[in-house]
């Protein structure tokens, strides 16, 4: 489930509010959005992928909340790592062009 929104990193673009299929986030006036309905989160990682500021972190547990240290995930680079994997954002290239799935179909 979505666990962390690092307010200091947030650029208040509200893309997470927009792209979350389950409407988990809530927009606020002149402030970062909040995780308003965490239990509705389906753990699809789409918010983290779309976040341009690497301000969101989705933990792998889809059923329960877990303790996550913001400092630790920033330090280990886990926060926003899915966006890097997909190759979105400035300075990156979509990794779809390196999609190796065909190697498995050939086997």
């Amino acid at each position: 489930m979505i666990e962390v929104l690092v307010e200091e990193r947030c650029v208040e673009c509200n893309l997470c509010v927009k792209v979350c299929p389950l409407n988990v986030f809530e927009k606020r006036e002149n402030q970062p959005p909040v995780i308003a309905r965490q239990s509705d989160c389906q753990t699809c990682y789409m918010c983290e992928l779309y976040c341009p500021a690497k301000a969101l972190y989705v933990a792998a547990d889809a059923e329960d909340t877990v303790d996550v240290s913001a400092d630790e995930i920033i330090e280990t680079g886990l926060i926003g790592s899915y966006r890097k994997d997909i190759g979105w954002g400035k300075g990156y290239k979509s990794t779809a062009s390196q999609d190796t799935a065909y190697k498995f179909y050939l086997k």
Binding site: L49, S97, T100, A101, Y102
Partner: peptide, 20 residues
């Protein structure tokens, strides 16, 4: 859509990355 091209120059279209 940026389909991958292998070392022989062949383009592979049997997989679609969902977000893209």
């Amino acid at each position: 859509y940026p389909f991958p091209i292998d070392e022989h120059g062949v383009k592979h279209k049997r997989s679609l990355q969902g977000p893209e």
